[in-house]
């Protein structure tokens, strides 16, 4: 399956055949069409005992051009949740502003005396609430044929302060899992994460350090194999204590030795 964001939302060629453009108007006024322009690649996230680790690199691509190299694709919400965006960057910016407005409106009536992020989360919207909201928003936009061209991961805690991780895409399709990855990460990072957290029970045994290590390993593999990726990335850990967000991390301990052994398309050895 083609995981490039440019291919999202298109009928699969192998199932439906090449798309027939013939009925579209060839002349006349240009009609505005939605398709992603500047895009971000994978977002990866995994649950652990007390919370969730989420990461995304800092690259925004314009086709195959590495256009912006300092783009922050993890956004915080109310100091209690983190949203990671893959796909179109302008739609991400729209969503970010929309969520900021929502957060400000939420804060009007919120007791500001809450002693901790934990208490604040009880009063305000938690990650599970935010997930439901974003799912309805994305599904509504797909119903209007004006989709927000993103796949989004939502990381945080639910109403019982349990780790929460979920995904919503441009069609409003939504699901949860102990580990999640968007775009290329679904193929390259998800198998690695499932080794460590195949089930909720497994994830609940992971420590914070282990989870961070797994996510960093995933970011490295993605940088090795995803051509639209970068070695600078953002990583956030969400727990009851709040969000620990680092926005300018450098991939460490890379080894490109394997690259020299790659010849041809896999079967070739000489």
């Amino acid at each position: 399956m083609d995981h490039r964001p440019q291919a999202w939302g298109r009928p699969r060629d192998d199932v439906y055949g090449a798309y027939d453009h013939s009925y579209l108007q060839q002349s006349g006024p240009k009609t505005a069409t939605q398709s992603p322009v500047v895009t971000g690649t994978s977002v990866v996230a995994i649950k652990f005992k007390e919370g969730v680790v989420i990461a995304a690199d800092n690259l925004a691509s314009y086709g195959s051009l590495a256009r912006f190299t300092d783009v922050k694709r993890l956004r915080t919400f109310l100091g209690t949740s983190v949203v990671g965006f893959g796909g179109d960057v302008s739609d991400m910016q729209w969503l970010d502003r929309h969520l900021k407005e929502l957060a400000i409106d939420e804060a009007y009536d919120q007791e500001p005396t809450a002693e901790s992020a934990e208490a604040a989360a009880k009063e305000g919207l938690n990650a599970a609430n935010l997930y439901k909201y974003l799912q309805k928003l994305m599904y509504k936009r797909r119903n209007d044929f004006d989709p927000l061209w993103n796949q989004i991961l939502i990381a945080g805690l639910d109403e019982d302060d349990k780790p929460f991780l979920a995904s919503v895409d441009l069609r409003g399709t939504s699901f949860t899992s102990p580990s999640l990855a968007t775009g290329f990460g679904a193929m390259l990072a998800q198998p690695i994460m499932r080794l460590h957290a195949a089930t909720e029970e497994d994830a609940a045994k992971l420590t914070r350090e282990q989870a961070v290590e797994v996510v960093k390993e995933c970011m490295k593999v993605l940088y090795y194999r995803d051509a639209r990726s970068l070695d600078r990335y953002s990583i956030a850990v969400v727990t009851k204590e709040g969000i620990d967000l680092k926005e300018d991390e450098q991939l460490e301990k890379q080894s490109w030795a394997f690259a020299e052994r790659i010849k041809g398309y896999g079967t070739q050895t000489v």
Binding site: F68, D70, V71, K72, R73, M92, Q93, W94, D96, K100
Partner: peptide
């Protein structure tokens, strides 16, 4: 209190 820091434009992605 107007921010004394260089505050990013809402939704800004780079610096």
């Amino acid at each position: 209190f107007d921010s004394e820091l260089e505050s990013p434009v809402d939704g800004e992605v780079g610096q």
